[in-house]
Amino acid sequence: MNLPTYAVVSLGGVTVGLSLLGWTLARWWVTYKKKSFKAARALAPFISCALYGMLLILSAGGLLGAAADWSLWGSSAIGDAVLEYGVGGDTPDVTRTSNLVLTDGGHAVVIIATVVLVAVWTVRRGFRWDLFGAVLCGISLGLSSGVAGVAGWVLSPVVSTLGDAVVGLL
């Protein structure tokens, strides 16, 4: 089932993604005065959820891909509104020119990562807004053509190759 995808990110969407990243890094920096392994470990959930968000936006379609596209559209619309009406700026399209799509094995990895994320979300009572923000950060930055989208550029072939090797498609 392939639902139509939006797959366009504006400067506003990238601004939202970078703002979420900046918020998390600033709070992390203030919280951990002494930088150590424990401090670095505290960033692991954010980084892993942001990478998961990038995988979602690189998905070809389906319900997860449609949810990621809807989230990307929403973050782009909010960021565009803030840039246009907040500071009077423009919001050009900053989508990567080459289209990265996951292979079937890569899609299997996305499903496995989704199951793991749901398991983490349901361990404790209550919704983890910090993890939601991290996923939205990854969705917003995954298609960016600049430095912000480098992780998506590297992540797609790595996950596709890993997934193809694990499920036996190679």
Rank of each mutant, 00 (worst) to 15 (best):
M1Y: 11
L3D: 00
T5K: 02
T5F: 01
Y6W: 12
A7C: 00
V9P: 09
S10C: 03
L11T: 11
V14G: 00
G17Q: 07
S19A: 15
S19E: 03
G22I: 08
T24W: 13
T24Q: 11
A26T: 14
A26V: 12
R27N: 14
W29G: 00
W29T: 10
V30H: 14
V30C: 00
T31E: 13
K33P: 01
K34T: 15
K35S: 11
K35C: 07
F37G: 12
K38C: 01
K38F: 12
A39S: 15
A39H: 12
L43Q: 06
A44M: 11
A44C: 07
I47S: 05
C49T: 09
A50E: 06
Y52A: 06
Y52D: 05
L55D: 10
L55G: 14
L56W: 05
I57G: 03
S59P: 00
A60M: 04
A60L: 02
L63F: 14
G65C: 03
G65H: 10
A66G: 02
A68G: 01
D69L: 10
L72Y: 02
W73R: 10
G74T: 11
G74C: 15
S75T: 15
S76A: 11
S76V: 08
S76D: 04
A77W: 07
A81I: 10
V82K: 05
V82L: 10
L83Q: 13
E84I: 13
Y85Q: 07
Y85G: 13
V87E: 00
G89W: 14
G89D: 12
D90H: 11
P92I: 10
D93T: 04
V94E: 04
V94T: 07
R96Y: 01
T97G: 04
L100K: 02
L100S: 03
V101H: 05
V101M: 06
L102H: 08
T103R: 00
D104F: 14
D104C: 06
D104Q: 13
D104K: 08
G106H: 05
H107C: 01
I111W: 15
I112S: 13
V115N: 05
V116Q: 07
V116R: 02
V118Y: 14
A119L: 13
W121L: 14
T122K: 14
V123Y: 09
R125Q: 14
W129N: 02
G133M: 10
G133P: 06
V135S: 06
C137H: 04
C137D: 10
I139D: 02
I139K: 06
G142P: 08
G142T: 09
G142E: 08
S145E: 06
S145P: 02
A148E: 05
G149M: 02
V150S: 00
G152W: 07
W153D: 09
S156P: 00
S156M: 11
S156F: 08
P157Q: 11
P157S: 09
T161K: 13
L162W: 14
L162A: 15
G163R: 04
D164S: 12
D164C: 08
A165Q: 11
A165S: 12
A165H: 13
A165K: 14
V166T: 13
V166S: 09
G168R: 06
L170Q: 01
